[in-house]
Design a protein around this nucleic acid. Structure first.
Lengths: 334, 334
DNA sequence: CTGAAAGCGCTAACAG
DNA sequence: CTGTTAGCGCTTTCAG
């Protein structure tokens, strides 16, 4: 069995209350006694039982993190930062992967209630269908939406997708691009929707025909290839804007297989600055999201929400355009 | 506040004991009463408080998972499977990322003791330096080493690295390669050591000079480039074997920048079948590890270890060679 | 088959 | 400053 506070108390010849007070430092204890207590605790290898603590304090010091799919590019890095920041704050992380399924996501949230998590960080699967689960969660515990927002009224920490997409379009325009195509995942994914809206708003005035060259599927390489194949049936645009590096890679491969030169004939841009962006030829111009900052801010916000003040501050961060070969045209600003 | 068992009991007009028995189905309860209990629980939205359950039952139904770096290629997929399998078994996952630091890793293990996890799954950072932490953990709770083994005497679920490397060498030999170079991470990483040993054992009889072309750094693209640069100072071997796709990509890029043709002049192979392998040109011949199977077996093993029998079965799975353009030579079997 | 009661390990009043 | 005591929400004897 593990060492209990009782054993530490006996070894130090004090009551369990004194041990508790000493170790949690919540009240002043005679320095001599405190030292004696610390020594017994140390020598017995005592670690407070967090289950008992949680039951008594009504706080588990644990937060649930629900992601739609941990294998998607951004999540591992995001979770890494989150876990680290939480740990530095004395919190632990219960990880849940919804498998991009809304029903599973809702069930996970309920499960986390059972675990009595002190707070929840969630990257909702679906802009609409995830709302009930997020609302339910928020009605019980502090919730922060991270990276994706489903419920407008609730706290979130996000990257400004419209701004990011604006940077992409501006850059392409400067490179002389006047006609565009768009490859992305469906608008049920919150961030995908924001990117699409921004793309549409920016590009419509420049190129009304772009609406007919918008391909919404998913964020896979396969969809990038497929979309490019469909695109290649008609006259090619100057640029293919992709909402993921995978899509951009697929499009790049398919277009080059058709003998299209990139960026000579068509410029291509990706999104997320994954390892892929530097792996292909030419390398991908893409958008780098500040993941470390995103995770750190999310933890800050959640801690604020959990704390007595209970005032989470939503945050919107700016992404950074990373310009590489896939969009650089010799005759810029045509 | 959340609904307690007391409220359910009152609503159903029974004792808390009966509610507990009904919901946990551990003992026969009068069908009428049971139905009534279920109805009240349902209508009140009751969810058992797992903290209280854990304290009473002395079992949290939670397992700790410690990985060296969740952003490394294999871990997200592995963790996804593990989380899913654990959940299907009614277990939850406390995630810890050691940041490839042994001291952090040890502290995480101790933290998990405090959480009273029922078991631990760990992919040790370091073949030697992680041993104390793994041993300590195993002395207290069931432990499964996954993907990497630090302590030989303890249960593990792994991929047969020697076999995998053997497949690579065999394939290259058939392609006519007679001289080799090797790029990998240092042998402090358990799997890296096994791969190196296998490479050395297989290649020495064929090419004694390979020892002088062994570059051990890390699994990054940058190291792949650097190693290839060093390699290019001397006469090129027929094949460059890399223990990671990132290293292979780096080597590929550096060698092509030197005007070396791949696979014409030099064949290159990677490891892990990451997205990178299909992103570069030519695509990478690489080794695919059965991650889903690995995760599933690890959960099975840990459950067995946690259960009353307490008999975890270690497992060694076979990887699969995926042959692509980077190693295919026209004049095979020279 | 059901209820009363004890107690998991800890902390927070409350006395002293 | 320290000890005694109650009790967090649940499960599990033990009686009945």
């Amino acid at each position: 069995m593990t060492v209990t506070i009782r054993e530490v108390a006996d070894a130090a010849g004090v009551s369990t209350a004194t041990v508790s007070r000493t170790l949690s430092g919540v009240q002043t204890v005679d320095p001599q006694l405190a030292e004696r207590v610390r020594r017994s605790a140390e020598s017995l290898g005592y670690r407070a039982n967090r289950v008992a603590q949680a039951l008594r304090r009504q706080s588990t010091q644990t937060v649930g993190v629900v992601v739609p799919d941990i294998t998607s590019p951004l999540f591992p890095a995001m979770i890494q930062v989150i876990e680290r920041e939480l740990r530095l704050a004395g919190l632990s992380l219960l990880l849940c992967d919804a498998g991009s399924d809304v029903a599973t996501e809702a069930e996970l949230v309920r499960d986390l209630f059972g675990h009595q998590v002190d707070g929840l960080m969630i990257s909702p699967c679906d802009r609409v269908a995830s709302q009930p689960a997020v609302r339910l969660a928020a009605s019980r515990i502090p919730v922060i939406q991270i990276g994706r927002q489903a419920v407008a009224g609730l706290p979130y920490v996000e990257v400004d997708q419209a701004d990011a997409m604006g940077q992409v379009i501006d850059h392409l325009t400067v490179q002389g691009c006047r006609s565009f195509a768009y490859i992305s995942a469906g608008p049920e994914i919150p961030a995908a929707r924001e990117r699409l809206d921004a793309f549409t708003a920016r590009v419509r005035p420049l190129d009304p025909a772009a609406a007919g060259r918008t391909y919404l599927g998913d964020y896979s390489v396969a969809w990038g290839r497929e979309a490019a194949r469909l695109l290649a049936r008609g006259p090619l645009p100057d640029a293919v804007v992709c909402a993921s590096d995978q899509g951009a890679l697929g499009a790049l491969q398919a277009l080059r297989a058709h003998g299209v030169r990139v960026p000579g004939d068509v410029a291509i841009t990706g999104f997320d600055d994954t390892v892929l962006a530097e792996a292909c030829e030419p390398r991908l111009t893409t958008v780098r999201q500040p993941l470390r900052e995103l995770g750190a801010q999310a933890v800050t916000a959640l801690r604020a929400a959990i704390g007595p003040a209970g005032t989470p501050r939503s945050a919107v961060l700016k992404a950074e355009l990373v310009i590489r070969g896939s969009s650089r045209r010799a005759h810029a600003a045509g």
